[in-house]
Each structure stands twice: as structure tokens, then as C-alpha cells.
């Protein structure tokens, strides 16, 4: 029982990090119908920006994080939107799918060739000390990760719901045509969304890299999990992505403990197929409606 509780808590902790990536993923989808197949790499790469800041440029770690964030928001937000996605938007989904897949490979290879193919240790924000709750061993890191993700998600929700810019972004996501008429600078709002996605990815990177180490190949599993979380939760909701992330984190942790390792990934995959077939709008999502 205490093992189970422990698995749940550490599952929630990693799940909250997945949720950050998944939320960014759904934001991009809502704002511009972009499916970012490189989302996992977007989480993998900022850790290396930060490592470059701290190891190569010799910045103190907190400043290196700021440096990494700035570089990520610029490259993965601004440049990605302007130079890669924007020209392809009028041409439907397929080119974007292909291009982001290729981009994922490109980012992986860049890190492997120009930084290192080896896994890099990454300083943790929280101590790895543990304490017992009903016999379950819980680390400060687990709690810290949960707390930071929660704060980030609440801040995002407040921003989207309470500020003028946030509301404009939501209007853009719901109906760009109407938003435009209401005087919203739609392109700018979409750009903001891309930058927020980059920031969320950076945060996820900072939290997850101490656990899994920073490695060029980390993106693939993280990206897959982010997709899963987004699909489980429903593509058109931030709340859905959050629940999806937490759920996947816990399920993944449990199946790693109780299922054969050979088919570990099969569990989430089957879950994915079942959910898409039975509830394509996700567990919490509302139907996007099909035009007749």
C-alpha cells in the first residue's frame, strides 16, 4: 500500500511536468491548429541552453536558467512561429506534421553533434531528501515539482482569464475571424502563444532534467507522453491537458512497476487508441463538432 502511494505521488510529480508540455501543445493547437511533433524536443533542448549558459558561458545557475529561457522563447517561440510554421499554415496539416517531425530530428542531431551524445547531469532545484508519509517515501523534489507546475499553471490560467492580452488570446483561439473584427491583432496573439509554449517547455525541461538527466534522445518519450496527455484530456482545453498529464504520469509509473517492461509503452498506446475511438474529444474535452 505504501509502495502504491509512493508510486502515485511520484507519478503525479512527473505527470505535472508532462502536463506543462501537454498544455503548451494544446495551446499551439488551439491558436493555430499546429500539431507540434517536436514538442518533446522543445522540452529536451532548453536544458542544453541552460547548460551552455552555466558551463560554457560560466553564468551562475539561476541566471543561466534565465538565459536558457530567453533563448528558448526566442528560438522555439519567435523563430519557430515566424520562419517555420507561418509559411505553412495555409497548406493544411501535412506539411506542418512533416516539418515538425524533421525539426525534431534536427534538434536531436544538433544536440548530439555539438554538445554531447552523453547524458548530462543537471542541477536539481530541490533537494533529494525524503520524508515518510504513512510509510511512503516522498522526496522534496516530488513535492517541489508538483508545486512549481501548479503555480505555473495557475498563473497561466489567471493570465488567460484575467488580463486583456490573455482574453484576446483566448478569443483568437476560439474564433480568429471574430477576434480580428474586434480589433485583436491575431498574428501577435498567435505569436504570444508560441512564446508561452516555449516558456512552458523550458520550465518542464528544468524540472525533468534532474530526474532523467539531460540527453539528446529524451525528447521522443516526453513528446509522446505530451501527445497522450493532450489527447486523453481533450485538445481544446488547458484543464484537460493538465488532468491528462497527471493521469499519464501515474499510469506510466504504475505500469512500469506492475507490467512487463517489454510492453510497457503498449499500455499508453492502447489507451490512446481506445480514447481516440471512443471519445475523440478527450475525456474532458467538448466535441469540436463536425460540419455537415
Amino acid at each position: 500500500m505504501s509502495d502504491f502511494l509512493q508510486l502515485i505521488i511520484s507519478g503525479l510529480s512527473t505527470g505535472s511536468i508532462y502536463a506543462l508540455a501537454a498544455i503548451g501543445f494544446t495551446l499551439l493547437w488551439q491558436a493555430s491548429q499546429t500539431i507540434n511533433f517536436a514538442q518533446g524536443e522543445f522540452v529536451m533542448v532548453p536544458a542544453f541552453f541552460i547548460l551552455i549558459g552555466s558551463r560554457v558561458l560560466g553564468l551562475p545557475f539561476p541566471i543561466a536558467i534565465g538565459f536558457g529561457l530567453a533563448v528558448a522563447v526566442f528560438t522555439l517561440g519567435f523563430v519557430f512561429k515566424r520562419l517555420v510554421i507561418q509559411p505553412m499554415l495555409p497548406h493544411g496539416h501535412l506539411p506542418i506534421v512533416m516539418a515538425t517531425i524533421a525539426l525534431a530530428i534536427l534538434m536531436r542531431e544538433l544536440v548530439k553533434e555539438f554538445y554531447s551524445a552523453e547524458a548530462q547531469t543537471f542541477p536539481a532545484l530541490f533537494s533529494e531528501q525524503t520524508f515518510d508519509v504513512f510509510g511512503a517515501v516522498i522526496s522534496h523534489q516530488d513535492i517541489g515539482n508538483l508545486a512549481v507546475s501548479a503555480v505555473a499553471i495557475i498563473a497561466l490560467q489567471l493570465f488567460l482569464g484575467r488580463t486583456r492580452t490573455g482574453r484576446s488570446m483566448q478569443a483568437t483561439a476560439q474564433n480568429p475571424g471574430v477576434a480580428e473584427i474586434l480589433g485583436v491583432n491575431v498574428q501577435r496573439m498567435v505569436l504570444y502563444t508560441f512564446m508561452i509554449n516555449a516558456a512552458l517547455a523550458t520550465l518542464a525541461s528544468v524540472l525533468i532534467s534532474p530526474i532523467y538527466l539531460a540527453k539528446f534522445s529524451n525528447g521522443e518519450p516526453i513528446g509522446l507522453v505530451a501527445f497522450l496527455a493532450a489527447i486523453v484530456g481533450g485538445f481544446n482545453q488547458v484543464r484537460g491537458a493538465l488532468v491528462g498529464g497527471l493521469l499519464i504520469g501515474v499510469i506510466d509509473n504504475l505500469s512500469a512497476a506492475y507490467l512487463s517492461s517489454e510492453y510497457r509503452i503498449a499500455g499508453p498506446m492502447i489507451l490512446l487508441i481506445v480514447i481516440i475511438l471512443l471519445r475523440p474529444q478527450g475525456l474532458l474535452g467538448t466535441s469540436e463538432g463536425r460540419t455537415v
Binding site: 520562419l83 517555420v84 506542418i96 516539418a99 524533421a102
Partner: peptide, 11 residues
């Protein structure tokens, strides 16, 4: 290779 694909899809 990957960079070429991105470029090709964009143009």
C-alpha cells in the same frame, strides 16, 4: 537531411 526537409516543406 532534416534541415532540408524543413526547408522544403516551408518553401
Amino acid at each position: 537531411y532534416a534541415a532540408l526537409v524543413v526547408f522544403l516543406m516551408v518553401v
